[in-house]
Amino acid sequence: MNNVERHQYILKKASEGGHISVSNLCEELTVSSVTIRKDLQFLEDSGLLFRTHGGATLQNPYQTDRPVFEKEKIHSIEKSKIGKRAAQLIEENDSIIIASGTTMQYLAKEIVPKGNLTVVTSALNVSQELIKHPNVEIIQLGGSIRHSSNSVMGQFAEDTLTNFFCSKLFLGVDGIDEEFGITTTNAQEAQLNRKMIHAAQKVIVLADSSKFGRKSFGKIVEFGKIDILISDSIPKKYIELFDSLGIQTIIC
């Protein structure tokens, strides 16, 4: 194949599989890894794909920050199903932490408290959803308001969390990468999420399928800290990875 034919082949494989690896392309096209990497560089410079570690993808793997009012309209059906399934894990007289994010708001909408429920949260929209329940005690963390996520963050919120220990943390993320772990678009929020993990017995990640294969600026934690992951769909390689780490996966 000449250059143009290789480029067309690479784009075709990427559109079929979502992600292509350098090693597979070398084998299929009988060329060196140097040639394939130059091809991928050319295609990325042309705006036709995005290079990743060991390969490339047509989907931008880097998540950027967007306003919560914009994100809540994206994948809303999937987020609603995830929130409904996650709400079933809340037990009678439970004490839980709910982090920020649009999927957390969908979770809050689905909560029907059994007995008395205590909720510690950084998210203002979560508090607004739960305030209608008289048997839900809401502990709203304080701190600096992050407008894009409609939540608080900072040292004051982190220090407050040291006074609590809850049975479960429900955590939303912006990216899930097999090498980088789970991430969010803001470093301060990532730090607060880590404090939440320390304050919870069980960590439950809620993420729609668009989050897989992506990474954001602020790393929250490695996969080993996660107990359960709930999604509408999980790529096979991630299911195998989570199984090897003892992470329970729930597909809804």
Rank of each mutant, 00 (worst) to 15 (best):
G224A: 01
R6T: 14
A108T: 07
I230H: 05
K132L: 07
L43S: 10
T52N: 04
Q41N: 09
G181E: 11
P134I: 01
I77W: 01
Y9M: 06
S216M: 03
S216R: 04
L161K: 03
G18S: 14
R214S: 14
L161T: 07
L107P: 02
I176R: 13
S149C: 03
Y106G: 02
N135A: 12
K38R: 15
I111F: 04
Q88M: 07
G181D: 14
F217Y: 15
N186K: 05
F170E: 09
R37L: 05
G17N: 06
N24K: 14
K219N: 09
L43A: 13
A87S: 08
S23Q: 14
S216T: 10
T160I: 08
S231N: 12
I228G: 05
N93Q: 05
I77G: 03
S167Y: 00
T184E: 12
G101C: 05
E129M: 04
R66P: 02
I226D: 05
V34L: 12
V203F: 09
F217S: 04
D227F: 11
V136H: 11
E129W: 02
G246C: 11
R146I: 02
G55T: 09
K195G: 11
V31C: 12
F156N: 14
D65I: 04
R6V: 14
R6A: 15
A56K: 06
G101P: 08
S95T: 07
L169F: 10
F217I: 07
Q248A: 09
C252M: 04
Q63P: 06
K219L: 08
A86L: 02
I10F: 09
I77N: 10
L29F: 01
A14Y: 03
I182K: 13
E178G: 01
D232K: 05
S95Y: 10
Y62A: 11
F212R: 14
G224R: 04
H53E: 13
Q59C: 10
G224L: 00
S244Y: 00
I220A: 06
F242R: 13
